[in-house]
Amino acid sequence: MNRGQVRIVTLKIDGKDVGARENETILEVARENGFDIPTLCHMEGLSDIGACRLCLVEVKGSNKLLTACVTTVQEGMEVTTHSPRLDSYRRMTVEMLFSERNHVCAVCVSNGHCDLQNLAVDVGLTHITVPYLYPKVSIDASHERFVLDHNRCVLCTRCVRVCDEIEGAHTWDLMGRGVKTRVITDLAEAWGDSESCTSCGKCVQVCPTGALFEKGKSVAEMTKRRTFLPYLTSMRNGDE
């Protein structure tokens, strides 16, 4: 990262004046200053894609909501991170995610350690008003150490990105489109038969839900270790 000529800008977040480097995103600046913006597809150390739409914020002068994870700050910006409108949209977005697959927390390995579950709490979601879509999806337990359960997948693509950007294997990708999108390994083959997978397990650790977990874990036993990611990223950046 170029630390040479970075200007400092000042902006307002929720009415408070903050300073920031001009190449920082709204999300980074907000979090540095203790403002909470919910996220799901974002993961520090991986590229940002702006897909989950939970980090949308209001910016004065823009008639559209902006994605905090990919929008860089500008001098004089006035950002609102929470409003009744934003809160309602976020609640509905999380609701959409719950209705999309079969999220039955009570029997999930990640119960209690799940990013999606935590989001529901954060946005105050207690009931789902839209019908569940109940898709028939499969579980791939062909890998000797890990399991992929499509029932819990939220298509955040953290696994795809960590595998491509950090491990360099690009075993994961997405197939299909729309609501029929699925994460796949290689040519949508059984994970255990994958030629490119190095079995490093990074995908499992970054997965926000119980979609990727270690074999042998029972209900509520799967906790994820993610300390490696900021560490690996900072090491690599230090090299440059």
Partner: peptide, 20 residues
Amino acid sequence: MTESCGKCVPCRVGTVQMYR
């Protein structure tokens, strides 16, 4: 719904819910 690319949540799931 069928042309949604599936990347963002509101379009991917929202169009299905609206269609239903």
